[in-house]
Computed example of a mutant assay.
Amino acid sequence: MTLTLNSLLAALGGLTAVGGLVLSVAGGIGWAPSATVRRRSRLERRIRALVVNDARANTSWWASGQTRLFGAALAGLGVWLFSGWLMGGLVTVAVVIGLPWLLNTSGSGKGQIDKLEAVEEWVRRMSDIHTVGVSLEATVQRSLETVPKAVREDVRLLAARQQAGWVPQDAYRAFADGLNDAMVDEVVALLILHVEDRGSGLSKALRELAEALQHEILSRREVEADRQKPRTNDRWVTIFCLVIFGITAFSGSYVEPYDTVMGHIVLAFVGVSFVLVKIWMRRMAFIEPAPRFLSSADRSGGGQSTREAP
């Protein structure tokens, strides 16, 4: 059986038609995915790790450089042997190695929002813990019992710096530097002001600041939802281009012009142009964060010691 471009297109069209029919029937009978939280199978977790590059999944099998290189070499060798097109095999190796970057269109916005939400929850709990006669340092120590996971290590480091004898203002500024967010600077500014004047009303001020953080989180989530639209378009365009490349790689005479020196140059130009367009599309969905006012670059005396004399 000879594999031709027409046969591949026909097979792809048939699969698309069957998939569309299945979705139409599912929509007609009112089927919807179950809202019950279930544990993903090992195969599903691996497929998700392949398509979505989750920064929290550091032990993902696809994140292993050796596994990715082995898969890329195997796929490239298969394309070369099956199609007889060496350049197609090399391009396949490059595509498989860069597949997580090609399909992962999510930025760091969601992770930053999750951290800010954890800060808001921590500030709200601080407002409940802090009472008359309890110092701010003791409040921070007591908050370790219920601090949200997203900022647990940052708060633990803050508490450890306080116990180690750091100047309180420097410890709070280092906490802000670690989270690197303009809204966290507002939280730290409030804590620094309390350290300097030790006035009353901190619990109320923390509660009001938590409300402001909550509004900021809602606004950022709306912006992130709008940013997700071009990211989704980017992912589908990438999948479509990869499918077309996969079909043409096995089309025989169609790719023969790319087996010459000029064809290699043209193919390299197309590949570089594709990557540049991907970068351009991602920058369209990128929004510069609000500038911080407690950044270490804006503070003088950054090279001085941050500890008090014993």
Rank of each mutant, 00 (worst) to 15 (best):
R68S: 09
A290H: 12
K149Y: 09
W236Y: 14
W62F: 11
Q228P: 14
E121L: 08
F269R: 00
V223Y: 12
I279G: 04
I217C: 04
F70C: 12
D298A: 10
D54S: 09
I239K: 00
G27H: 12
D54L: 07
E308C: 14
A225P: 09
H215C: 00
P100M: 04
A174F: 01
G302L: 04
I279F: 05
I29N: 09
Q66R: 09
G89L: 06
G271I: 06
T105N: 09
T139Q: 08
L190H: 02
R220L: 11
G98R: 11
V151I: 14
A210T: 05
R40E: 15
Q162C: 13
H215Y: 09
A57W: 05
V22F: 06
P148H: 01
Q228D: 12
L8F: 01
V18S: 10
W61T: 10
L81V: 13
P148S: 02
V25L: 15
W101T: 11
E224I: 09
S200H: 02
T4L: 00
A249Y: 02
D177C: 01
Q141T: 14
G109L: 14
L103E: 12
V93P: 10
P168Q: 03
P291Q: 00
P310S: 07
A94G: 12
R161Q: 13
F70A: 13
I97E: 00
A249M: 05
D259A: 13
R142V: 14
A297V: 15
E308R: 15
A297E: 15
V96A: 03
